[in-house]
C-alpha cells in the first residue's frame, strides 16, 4: 500500500482544493473562492498566481495591492517551501498528464516512440516569449491560452468546449511527447522551476541503500533531476523536481525520502561523522 501513499495523498489534496473552489462558487462557501489565477481564503487572505501577475505587470496593468500581496504569499510559499509542488499537488492538469503517462507505461507506448525530439528547456523559451508578447500586445499572453486555467475555470464555472483542452493535453502527452506539457512546454512549470531552486522541501537520496532497480526513473516525470540515483547520496537540487513523491512511493529500498533543509544540516553532519 505504501507504494501509492504520496500518489493518493496528492490526489486527495488536488481534488479537495478543486471541490473547495467549486463549493465557493456554487454553494457560497467562504473557505476558498476564485480559481488558481486569484482566490480568497476565508474571505480575507488573497492568493494570486505570481506568473500571471508578472505578465500583467509586463503588459502595463496597474497591479492592485490585493493581487500583489496574494502573489507575494504564493511566491514565498513555493519559493521557500514547496518548489514546484504546485505542479504535482494543486494543478488539475497534473491528473490529465499523469493519466497519459500511466497509459504510456501500461500499454507500452514508451517502447514504440522512444525518441524525445524536444528539449526540456523549451519551457524557459515559452516563458520568455510569453513575456515578450505580453509586453507588445499589452495583454497577459499566457493567460489567454493557458490550458491550466481553462481546465480549472471549466471545472468551477462551466466547461464549454474546455473538454477539448483536456483531450488535447492527454493525446499530446500520450502520442506526441512524453511529459510533453508539464515537462517541456508549460511556462508556469518553468516559472516555478526557477523560483523553486532554493526550496527547503527536497527529496533526498541514499545511494548506500539503493539497489539500482531504477523504478524511480521509470515513474519520474522529470527524470533528469534524478541523475544521482545509485551514484551519490545527495538531495535532488534541480528546481524542475515537482516534489510529487512518486519516486519515494516506488522505492522498495528506502533510498529516497522527503526532507526539510532546516533539519538536514544536523543529519548531514551526522552522516559525515560516521
Amino acid at each position: 500500500m505504501s507504494s501509492v501513499k504520496y500518489l493518493i495523498l496528492r490526489r486527495v489534496v488536488q481534488i479537495s482544493i478543486l471541490l473547495l473552489y467549486f463549493a465557493g462558487n456554487y454553494y457560497g462557501w467562504k473557505i476558498l473562492v476564485g480559481n488558481l489565477s486569484t482566490s480568497v481564503v476565508f474571505g480575507k487572505i488573497p492568493l494570486s498566481d505570481p506568473y500571471a501577475v508578472l505578465q500583467m505587470f509586463v503588459a502595463g496593468a496597474v497591479i492592485s495591492s490585493n493581487i500583489l500581496i496574494g502573489a507575494v504569499i504564493i511566491f514565498l510559499f513555493y519559493g521557500i517551501l514547496g518548489g514546484r509542488a504546485f505542479c504535482s499537488w494543486v494543478c488539475p492538469v497534473n491528473i490529465i498528464t499523469d493519466a497519459a503517462n500511466w497509459t504510456r507505461r501500461k500499454f507500452g507506448f514508451d517502447m514504440v516512440a522512444k525518441k524525445q525530439p524536444s528539449s526540456r528547456n523549451l519551457r524557459y523559451w515559452v516563458l520568455l516569449i510569453s513575456l515578450i508578447i505580453s509586453f507588445f500586445l499589452a495583454i497577459p499572453a499566457f493567460e489567454f491560452i493557458s490550458p491550466i486555467s481553462m481546465v480549472h475555470r471549466g471545472l468551477i464555472f462551466g466547461m464549454g468546449f474546455g473538454w477539448a483542452a483536456v483531450v488535447i493535453l492527454y493525446l499530446f502527452d500520450l502520442f506526441v511527447l512524453k511529459n510533453g506539457w508539464c515537462g517541456h512546454i508549460c511556462p508556469l512549470g518553468g516559472f516555478y522551476s526557477i523560483i523553486g531552486k532554493f526550496r527547503l522541501l527536497k527529496v533526498k537520496h541514499d545511494s548506500e541503500a539503493c539497489t539500482g532497480c531504477m523504478e524511480c526513473k521509470i515513474v519520474c516525470p522529470e527524470v533528469q533531476v534524478l541523475h544521482m540515483i545509485d551514484k551519490v547520496s545527495i538531495p535532488v537540487t534541480s528546481g524542475e523536481c515537482t516534489n510529487c513523491g512518486r519516486c519515494i512511493d516506488v522505492c522498495k529500498d528506502n533510498a529516497l525520502g522527503f526532507f526539510l533543509k532546516v533539519e538536514n544540516n544536523n543529519k548531514k553532519g551526522e552522516i559525515n561523522n560516521e
Binding site: 456554487y26 457560497g28 464555472f157
Partner: peptide, 24 residues
C-alpha cells in the same frame, strides 16, 4: 483595453453574483 490586461480571470465577481442576496 485596460480591462483585458488588468482582469486576472479569477471569477470572484461571478461567484459574488451567483451568491448575491435574492439569488439564493
Amino acid at each position: 483595453n485596460d480591462f483585458l490586461k488588468t482582469c486576472i480571470k479569477c471569477g470572484l465577481c461571478v461567484a459574488a453574483c451567483r451568491n448575491r442576496d435574492g439569488n439564493i
